[in-house]
Write a protein that binds this DNA or RNA. Structure first.
Lengths: 231, 231
DNA sequence: ATTACTATTTCGCGAGTAA
DNA sequence: TTTACTCGCGAAATAGTAA
């Protein structure tokens, strides 16, 4: 979530477009105001506020100003950009709704194996909380959707062997829990699953039950972000 | 420039993440308020305002709401996304400043040739206004930068022959004029140029002189958006 | 010309609450 | 439970202007 104030986005964008990230550039508040569609005074205030937040450096050069965007400021814009990217590129979505049920404890065991952990960290960007959320799908429309999921692109976790036995592959589908309460989660499809099409297994970097505040028996929503083929 | 109000972009983002672009989805304003970090009332107002602007469709389903983002709404977010993409990905920038001078009228003639026009339309996304802006670079720092431009990636317009004679290639470098006053322009580098390193030739879909309000002799700024190699 | 102060207005948000 | 109204506060914008 961006900490940057929304009204500063256009200002930051224009500054970046004229190269203010890597160098100091000369600006006038009158011109900046015009390109962001605000007054000269608003542009002036934006620059002062952005400086106060540590998003840019600003100093006088004669009567004009020179400014440079800091790395902190740049990464704010970048993170907003990334989240919009997800919104425009990761639709459509498969929607599920069901009841939280007790898992068999197997999920936690598997996820803790180094052979999986390393790949999760590398491919999902986080290490899953040890423990999966098991959801019993309650409605036909959801179990139907559950059978669709295989058709779409997934993040593939390879199986491996520890010498004694082999462990199957895992497909991960990035998902949201309860419309954004947890924005970084994944539905898992296991090669060797003990579950049926009415079950959904979900991981996240945090404990989903604690974060969302749910118990076994409660209803929960999961939106799977189906990835569009990138050409 | 997005017409959408900045305070609505988080709302639109969350709706898109739960699949509201292609389907109607059920939302409650309480939950939406939580995920956008605002109150239930604010979420409710956002949805009403977005509907009034034609960015989403909204109707009651019992006590709850179902909403769907319109194509108009989607393209608003997409265009904001695109402009941020330019800001985060197209840096660094080469900056020029110089004096508008009278061209020889050759530019307009060349650009009007079908062999060029078709390619401009296809590769730049617009047909150039018939007439180039010629800028005399005044400072050593700018003529030095002018010699750098060849090193960077450009949009390449192929030369062609009309049977009587051949016409050389043209390299286009997307640029801004006067810090965003014209956001869609391009610096041209011609295979057979009559100009030297102190000259810059710029095109845009509109008349630059009229749009910016400048005459021969006035000073003008051009920011060339150097494209980073995409891997 | 410029920035940025003060005053004023407009706008967005949350609280309280009706339906 | 829900949505969405009114009201009041504070944030953010513009206008006017000093320096």
């Amino acid at each position: 979530m961006p900490e940057i104030k929304l009204q500063h986005i256009l200002t930051m964008r224009e500054l970046m477009l004229i190269g203010a990230h890597h160098n100091f550039v000369e600006v006038t508040t009158t011109n900046l105001g015009r390109v962001i569609g605000r007054s000269q005074q608003a542009a002036s205030k934006h620059l002062m506020e952005l400086e106060a937040s540590g998003y840019l450096e600003r100093s006088r050069k004669g009567q004009k100003l020179v400014v440079r965007i800091t790395d902190k400021g740049f990464s704010e814009i970048q993170s907003l950009f990334t989240s919009l990217k997800a919104a425009v590129e990761l639709s459509p979505v498969l929607r599920f709704e069901g009841k939280v049920v007790q898992g068999m404890g197997e999920g936690a065991y598997y996820l803790s194996l180094e052979g999986y952990r390393k790949q999760f960290k590398e491919k999902l960007g986080y290490e899953p909380f040890p423990g999966t959320l098991n959801i019993k799908l309650t409605d036909k429309v959801f179990t139907d959707a559950r059978r669709e999921i295989d058709k779409y692109h997934s993040i593939f976790i390879h199986g491996f062997s520890d010498g004694k036995r082999t462990y199957g592959w895992v497909k991960c589908y990035p998902a949201l829990v309860n419309d954004g309460q947890i924005a970084e989660a994944a539905v898992l499809v296991l090669e060797r699953t003990h579950y049926d099409d009415s079950m959904l297994e979900v991981i996240a970097p945090v404990s989903i039950k604690k974060t969302v505040g749910i118990e076994n028996g409660d209803r929960v929503k999961v939106n799977v972000q189906l990835m569009i083929k990138t050409d």
